[in-house]
């Protein structure tokens, strides 16, 4: 499933196939001072004008370092944040304008898997209850006995023994809990899942099991994933297309192999360069160009292109105006004037 030429409004899939369309999304968090009378003193520009589109069945990777806005983007899509401006269209409908009934339906179609399998499960609920609750809330299976059968089925799908239904989260390992998180997301038959660092907390051998599970489920149920991760190796493995974010901006978007084989934006290049490859021969042959400096504060981002203070290609004009996010070749978008 390769990237189709982008529409002008949102880089991504072609017009009618747009399943999720994010346009000019901005999410600014206010920084306030004072206890009784709160004054806004600044803004954290967590997400600053990004646009992209996804089609059904696609896995889009959203990568970047801490504070680049990838999680906030996911939370905006999930309607867990009230966006500052911009539009999120899901199946052609603006998700911020849904009425209560439609929103409830939206929450059923769009699910999330969180990073931390330790804090995202209620420690006082048994696994069976955790899995049954969303089905009860959404009225999917009103009959309690049938619900229990479905719980067993979900445990099976996610590679867990059915005896876990009577256990509590603390009795399980990290990998098993993450499988419960996945089973919970699946319980309401979603179409779209935001995987927010879903495998980052797991050990390599367990991580590989969970990655394979996510891939199998995608194929079996035709799921669409927004796969948020800082681990580029995992993203390369699982995603069809990848978007790179830096300080609230999207700097590059391309099909997976294209992005990893022909990275264009200087930040993407630096990021790929920084990831060590588990092979001493390959490592010895690689040129390491290590990007200097630290990520600036999103409260006070640099003017112009946000990457210019760390960029080796930066020229004077980079400090003036933010570069346009342009399609440099079919399906490959980049925000840089110097490439």
């Amino acid at each position: 499933m390769s990237a189709v030429a982008g529409s002008t409004a949102a880089p991504g899939a072609a017009g009618q196939m747009d399943f999720l369309q994010v346009s000019n999304l901005k999410m600014y968090f206010p920084v306030t001072e004072g206890i009784l009378i709160q004054r806004k003193v600044a803004e954290v520009k967590a997400v600053d004008d990004i646009s992209f589109a996804m089609h059904k069945g696609e896995t889009l990777g959203l990568v970047g370092e801490s504070g680049c806005g990838k999680t906030t983007t996911g939370r905006c899509i999930l309607q867990l944040e009230k966006v500052t401006s911009g539009q999120i269209l899901y199946d052609g409908k603006d998700v911020s304008k849904l009425n209560k009934a439609d929103l409830s339906q939206y929450r059923q179609k769009v699910q999330v898997i969180f990073q931390d399998p330790f804090s995202s499960l209620n420690p006082r609920m048994k696994i069976g209850e955790i899995l049954a609750e969303p089905m009860r809330v959404h009225g999917i299976i009103p009959d309690a006995r049938k619900r229990d059968e479905r719980v067993m089925e979900l445990l099976n799908i996610c590679g867990l023994s059915t005896r876990f239904a009577d256990r509590y989260p603390h009795e399980m390992s990290g990998g098993q809990r993450q499988r419960v998180g996945i089973a919970r997301a699946l319980s309401v038959n979603p179409e779209f899942i935001v995987c927010d660092e879903a495998v980052s907390a797991l050990d390599v051998s367990i991580q590989a099991q969970v990655i394979n599970l996510l891939e199998d489920l995608r194929d079996e149920f035709g799921l669409t994933y927004l796969f948020i991760s800082h681990d580029l190796s995992v993203v390369r493995h699982i995603c069809h297309r990848v978007a790179v974010m830096y300080l609230g901006n999207m700097v590059e978007l391309a099909s997976c192999d294209e992005l990893f084989d022909n990275p264009i934006h200087p930040y993407t290049r630096a990021l790929l360069d920084a990831v060590p490859i588990p092979d001493p021969t390959v490592e010895a042959a690689r040129q390491h160009k290590i990007v200097t400096g630290e990520i600036p504060s999103p409260m006070n981002p640099p003017p112009g292109c946000v990457f210019h203070p760390r960029c080796e290609l930066a020229v004077d004009s980079c400090k003036q105006a933010a570069p346009e996010f342009r399609e440099i070749k079919p399906g490959h978008w980049v925000a840089c004037t110097e490439v």
Binding site: V234, R236, I277, P278
Partner: peptide, 9 residues
């Protein structure tokens, strides 16, 4: 079991 950056998807 470890995904590698230099291997195609």
């Amino acid at each position: 079991s470890v995904p590698r950056l230099d291997q195609p998807r």
